[in-house]
Amino acid sequence: MAEAPPRRLGLGPPPGDAPRAELVALTAVQSEQGEAGGGGSPRRLGLLGSPLPPGAPLPGPGSGSGSACGQRSSAAHKRYRRLQNWVYNVLERPRGWAFVYHVFIFLLVFSCLVLSVLSTIQEHQELANECLLILEFVMIVVFGLEYIVRVWSAGCCCRYRGWQGRFRFARKPFCVIDFIVFVASVAVIAAGTQGNIFATSALRSMRFLQILRMVRMDRRGGTWKLLGSVVYAHSKELITAWYIGFLVLIFASFLVYLAEKDANSDFSSYADSLWWGTITLTTIGYGDKTPHTWLGRVLAAGFALLGISFFALPAGILGSGFALKVQEQHRQKHFEKRRMPAANLIQAAWRLYSTDMSRAYLTATWYYYDSILPSFRELALLFEHVQRARNGGLRPLEVRRAPVPDGAPSRYPPVATCHRPGSTSFCPGESSRMGIKDRIRMGSSQRRTGPSKQHLAPPTMPTSPSSEQVGEATSPTKVQKSWSFNDRTRFRASLRLKPRTSAEDAPSEEVA
């Protein structure tokens, strides 16, 4: 009796068929016929556990003709996506030579605008209408194809895939403007070719909807975003200037109206006075309405000098805001240009540092100066060695804690006790272990408590650290204090090793 083939788990290929790579489910599931010992083939499952149809090819690079078809379809799909992405970037994010197409579109729109203006002049109306009709045909074809291509290429973005995504893309403001202008152009052409009475009025009214094509030149909205950011950044200043200017306008108009309503027919109503105030304070000055009385002229002159300053403030605020924003954008561009080279330089330096163990090129690091100058660790070890030599091999803490019996001779020589300023008595072995921070803190506390006492003391002649007598400086308080830590004499004296002298005989010792 033939044995059933062993159940295979995992992703390994079956024996005897090495080139074939078959994806098997996580659990080997066989058909009921196979479990019962029949000759049925096992049921194939996909990666998600769903059964595959009987005629479906197995996924994998070596699955025969199905694999070749899959490779061809995958390559075609990649080319399709690449083309779609390229078209989308050309239309929505132009760079380099892609601006040539947008310059061509701008020339078409500008020519249409010029011809629309010439069509309103009686001398050039006939020729402009003929040229404009031909140009409209060209623009309908160009913009119609462009609109379709834009909607198709938007599928390269995830949020615009599918018919719902394309509809979302078509609802964008600039796409809506394109659609309105396209419909208006078709209506103008249809009305112009019919030759009816309505054609002339339709051409004159709907052609100027094509002015909206100038708005579509900035599809990404960079200028509007820049203007919005400047207004938002200086909103408080703008609101303040406009508010005060509006108050000056209504008060000036009302007072001039009261002064001129009886003697001047131009100011017969408050609305006429508001019109005069707006034209005057905005420095336009049509001259259609002028005050005639001396009181009205004085009020107009005073409020004009006051109001023009507030009406001119928004222009200066926006101008300075634009300058600052442009400078910030230039700085951001320079930062973006330098970020990648800086990151590459840091990575290269780290690779060199991690692979080169000698690091002989590091001549400006802490390790280099640590090898030249005595390190703080060596100074600490030197302090501890000196203290243990004086205390008979014991550390200062051990000397303080060691009990001394009554009447027993002390094995240590008597030492002079010292007192730290602002604290109780402490171990004499710690007097010379006072660090730089303690010395600086002690000097600052003395300056806070009594700076007036220092200038009363007789001035001391500054001497070099080499000429100081070591026996005289029994305490860190003898170090000359200065008002600034930048004094080199104080810094050098604080680094010197001060020996400890006994109370009975204080021989001067120098520590090399």
Rank of each mutant, 00 (worst) to 15 (best):
F303V: 05
I105R: 03
P51T: 10
L238Q: 00
M1V: 14
F335C: 04
V100D: 08
F311I: 09
G222D: 12
G316D: 15
D272H: 06
I189L: 07
D288H: 04
S253A: 11
R331L: 03
G285S: 04
G307D: 09
R72S: 11
T293R: 02
T280A: 09
K337R: 10
A259P: 04
L318P: 14
E260Q: 00
D218V: 09
G287S: 01
A259D: 02
T283N: 04
V231G: 04
L108R: 02
M214K: 00
L274V: 08
L345H: 07
T283P: 01
G165S: 01
V117E: 08
W224S: 01
F311V: 13
F335V: 11
T283S: 09
V256F: 02
A190D: 00
W276L: 01
H330Q: 14
V103D: 09
L209R: 01
F254I: 03
F254L: 13
I105K: 04
G49V: 12
Y243N: 13
S273P: 00
S235I: 04
R331Q: 09
Q327H: 15
S229T: 03
L255Q: 04
M1R: 02
P94R: 10
S269F: 03
G192A: 10
L274R: 00
F251V: 02
P173R: 06
F198S: 01
A199D: 11
A271P: 10
A190P: 03
E92V: 15
P291R: 01
G321S: 03
S41F: 14
T280K: 06
L295P: 09
K261Q: 06
R207S: 15
A323P: 11
G321D: 08
L313R: 15
A300V: 03
G319D: 13
Y257S: 04
E92K: 11
Y286S: 02
G316C: 02
L255R: 00
L212R: 01
V248L: 09
Y243D: 10
V230G: 01
I279L: 03
D266E: 11
M139K: 09
K333Q: 04
A312T: 07
W276S: 04
R220P: 05
G285D: 02
T282I: 08
W275R: 04
G192V: 12
L306P: 15
A342P: 07
F169I: 07
Y270D: 03
A304D: 09
S50C: 12
Q84P: 14
K236M: 05
L249F: 14
T283A: 02
F310Y: 04
A252P: 00
G49S: 15
V230A: 13
V151D: 04
L91Q: 15
L226P: 00
W276G: 02
N264S: 10
D262Y: 05
F267Y: 12
Q122L: 07
L9R: 14
I279F: 01
S273W: 01
H234D: 13
R93P: 12
P13R: 14
W152S: 02
W163G: 08
G144R: 08
W224R: 00
E237D: 06
T278R: 05
N129S: 08
A154D: 09
F246I: 11
L324Q: 13
T278P: 00
F303I: 11
F246C: 09
F322S: 10
R331G: 00
R166G: 08
G321A: 06
P291A: 08
S268F: 14
G221R: 08
G321C: 00
S273T: 07
V248E: 04
G155E: 05
E92G: 12
G296S: 06
Q329H: 09
P314R: 10
L107S: 09
W275S: 01
R213P: 04
I180N: 10
I279N: 02
I197N: 08
A342S: 09
G165A: 09
V176F: 05
G321V: 12
Y243S: 06
H330P: 00
R150Q: 06
Y270N: 05
F198C: 11
D178G: 15
L324V: 15
G316R: 00
T278S: 01
E260V: 03
G319A: 11
P291T: 07
V215E: 01
T278K: 03
T293S: 13
A342E: 06
V109G: 07
D288Y: 04
E237G: 07
T290K: 10
E336D: 05
A301P: 00
R297G: 04
G296R: 01
Y101S: 01
V256I: 05
V114M: 07
I244S: 07
V256G: 03
T223N: 07
R166P: 09
G245R: 07
P341R: 15
I250T: 10
F267S: 04
T282R: 01
R338G: 08
L247R: 06
V231A: 01
L345P: 10
V186E: 06
K337E: 11
D288G: 03
A187D: 14
L324R: 04
I279S: 01
K337Q: 10
S153Y: 12
W152C: 01
G316S: 07
A252D: 14
A300D: 01
Y270C: 02
R207H: 08
S273L: 01
L238R: 00
R213L: 11
K261M: 05
S309Y: 11
L226R: 01
S320P: 12
A154G: 03
